[in-house]
């Protein structure tokens, strides 16, 4: 999509090439500022995490470490078992959640896309009504905890995001617009059953939309911490995001609560916790993988947004 936009704007601009040199420079200035505003906050976090705590306290947060130090990371990785465990939880939730979600969404979207299927309006209503109304947090929570017994279970982090109605809409639209009904019909004449057609003909032709929805899911699962906030208590199933959440809050708690701080120092412990740099090092540990996956993600997101925006 972007490349079309670019080739289009290039061909437009070639018509009168010299008229807007100034305009282009202004655009670049504007966008360089905007890009800086979007990237620099992250740079700040990374820079502080690699800085020496006392320098940071004396001179404040800087976009470049004034005195390089890895002490914050040493401390973060003291508890390396927890970090590995949390990465494991996040990876498991993301991979398993994304796969199950793709299966559920495509299974629901495919019969919905079949315009020759009677009574499919009922099923469409069943799923789209959940976009309009829900019972609210309390009853939903009580069902998960009291009836499904998912407190502290890793499945409490997976189940809630499995079937997003919006993704069903996108996939249904893709199926009904890109897969020719003649193809389905000829498969039927050749004696292919519905399941065979779905798995051997429809799904292989739908890789773009599967990739897009898969990436949406991956991002949702990887970045989720709200479900952990609701359902996770003990440290066994703490995901990376939730670990970051807890680290921030516990440091805040120690610092803002003088009784706790006094208690620690009276107990013989010293409170030279490099709190600022430690926080930011934890953030970097949490951001890590998503930044590396970013260019790949972006490509499919743009595609997916186009699929969703055009909708038909």
């Amino acid at each position: 999509m972007i490349s079309i936009a670019q080739s289009q704007s290039r061909s437009k601009s070639q018509l009168h090439y010299d008229s807007s040199k100034l305009g282009q420079s202004l655009l670049h200035v504007l966008f360089l500022l905007l890009s800086a505003a979007c990237i620099l906050p992250l740079v700040l976090v990374v820079a502080v995490s690699f800085s020496d705590e006392t320098t940071v306290i004396a001179n404040g947060f800087k976009f470049w470490p004034e005195k390089f130090s890895l002490r914050a990371y040493d401390l973060v990785f003291l508890d390396y078992m927890q970090i590995i465990r949390s990465y494991g939880v996040s990876l498991f939730v993301t991979v398993v959640g994304t796969i199950i979600s793709l299966i559920l969404v495509s299974l629901f979207a495919y019969p919905l896309s079949r315009s020759d299927l009677k009574y499919r309006g009922f099923f469409a209503f069943l799923i789209f009504f959940t976009m309009l109304f829900n019972g609210g947090l309390v009853p939903w929570y009580l069902v998960y905890v009291n009836y499904l017994h998912l407190m502290d279970s890793i499945w409490a982090l997976i189940l809630p995001l499995l079937l997003t109605p919006f993704y069903v809409i996108i996939m249904r639209t893709f199926f009904s617009t890109t897969i020719p009904s003649e193809l389905l019909e000829s498969a039927k004449i050749d004696g292919s059953g519905e399941w065979y057609t779905f798995m051997r003909i429809v799904l292989p032709l739908s890789l773009p939309v599967l990739a897009t929805i898969g990436l949406f899911n991956t991002l949702n699962y990887w970045n989720d911490w709200f479900l952990s906030l609701l359902y996770i208590d003990e440290s066994k199933n703490v995901s990376v995001q939730y670990l970051m959440y807890r680290t921030l809050n516990s440091i805040q708690y120690i610092l803002s609560n003088s009784a706790v701080a006094n208690g620690i120092s009276q107990g013989g412990g010293s409170l030279d916790l490099p709190s600022k740099t430690l926080q930011m090092a934890m953030a970097v540990v949490g951001i890590g993988p998503i930044i590396f996956a970013y260019p790949f993600f972006q490509k499919f997101f743009v595609k997916g947004l186009t699929l969703g925006a055009v909708k038909g």
Partner: peptide, 10 residues
Amino acid sequence: FLSMVVVGYI
């Protein structure tokens, strides 16, 4: 692409 926890840190 950043989670709200990361945004909170920033």
